[in-house]
Write a protein that binds this DNA or RNA. Structure first.
Lengths: 130, 130
DNA sequence: GTATTTATTGCAACTTACTTGCAATATTAT
DNA sequence: ATAATATTGCAAGTAAGTTGCAATAAATAC
């Protein structure tokens, strides 16, 4: 893993992730930082940040990669025990859900990692509320 | 959902799925049917077959869409209760796993569907066997 | 602080997955 | 058989993501 230099572009992105509540797609970032940095730079920085475990990513059901900051979740810094991700069918926002999904063991298969993508209606879009 | 006509290309693909053991990516299909049909035809047929619930698809961790035939799984033809998918880190093959993963309920979220992507070592690649 | 090393950036060009318009063709219904 | 229309192949287009490279900026050594 390469050293990450504190450039303006890197700091902008890190700051953005610190403030962001929801995972964002690369395309959102490219649009957001349209005037300040090149898309290739964004791709490369995200790669480095993920390699250094400062952010994590998942692929949503459209095949779009989304990134979110990596909050430390207790002691589980490793690959296992990741949280599920949620995408709202209504507003399109996604979230990292703070729950644990247990994986049944499957005979003859060694399961090393798991990614769970849930879809439905999020907090803000539920009919009864508001 | 449009009517699906029994053309040669459609039948070739249906036959392929009947025989296939593992989910395949579109790119695999394009390569396989390179000389017999155009890639745009493949994309369109897959769309129709999925729309008619004859096959299903999922996005694997590389963002690649994979298709597999839809075997009827008891009474759960609907969207819920889908099986998890598995991709082998060694040989790259994928499988539909015949197990059920239970999803914890999350307060304020309505969960309508779930996609589980497991990765690890498959049956054929486990060290001890063979 | 200055010089040196090396990571990082922007740009443009490129690759690749996927889509679309359209005229020709094949399938189904009449 | 005829008519209606779904499907196909082709070629061209779109868009996401990648790459090479020269210029620049950060970190390190002096």
């Amino acid at each position: 893993m390469a050293v990450i230099r504190k450039t303006k572009t890197v700091e902008s992105l890190i700051n953005f992730f610190k403030k962001s509540e929801h995972p964002v797609s690369i395309l959102d970032l490219i649009e957001k930082f349209d005037t300040t940095m090149d898309k290739s730079t964004i791709y490369r920085i995200l790669e480095r940040l993920e390699g250094s475990n400062m952010i994590h990513s998942f692929i949503d059901s459209d095949g779009v990669k989304r990134y979110a900051q990596l909050k430390d979740e207790g002691s589980s810094i490793g690959k296992q025990e990741k949280h599920p991700h949620f995408v709202c069918n209504d507003c399109g926002n996604s979230s990292c859900l703070p729950v644990k999904i247990s994986i049944p063991s499957v005979p003859d298969y060694i399961i090393e990692s798991a990614e769970h993508l849930l879809k439905g209606i999020c907090k803000n879009c539920t009919p009864q509320v508001k």
